[in-house]
């Protein structure tokens, strides 16, 4: 699931921090991961070698932040077992027999409570 979510993450990072988002495929609302500041943010690279070094550090920290964002997203997103879409906790219902997304529940006339109302 983490790998799946990590693949869906959209990059919202800036030069100062790393942030990623995932859009719920039912309500369309974006979820944003916690911002992780870039360790070298605000530090000027005077020459080319240092800039290249900073770029490498940036990419390495960004990859770590992406993984962390994927782990964070696991707590808030689920994959609907019927339509296989990624849905947020507000759109994912706990039903009697099988948990599913709001739209599938509507189609199947199932009732349930959202994971996060």
């Amino acid at each position: 699931m983490t790998n799946l979510l990590t693949g869906y993450l959209e990059d919202r990072s800036t030069a100062q921090y790393f942030c990623f988002s995932i859009s719920c495929e039912v309500c369309g609302e974006f979820w944003y991961s916690s911002s992780v500041p870039f360790s070298k943010a605000g530090q000027a690279a005077e020459h080319r070698e240092k800039r290249e070094l900073y770029d490498a550090v940036y990419q390495r920290e960004k990859n770590r932040a992406r993984l962390a964002a994927g782990r964070e997203a696991v707590e808030r997103f689920s994959q609907c077992p019927i339509c296989r879409r990624l849905v947020c906790d507000s759109c994912f219902l706990i039903c009697d027999e099988m948990d599913m997304c709001r739209e599938c529940a509507g189609r199947l006339k199932e009732s349930g409570e959202p994971v996060a109302p």
Binding site: F30, S34, S35
Partner: peptide, 16 residues
């Protein structure tokens, strides 16, 4: 939390 972290930058809630 996202807005708090970077209040200057507009944030997409959804595509619209």
């Amino acid at each position: 939390m996202r807005l708090l972290a970077d209040i200057q930058r507009p944030l997409l809630r959804d595509r619209d």
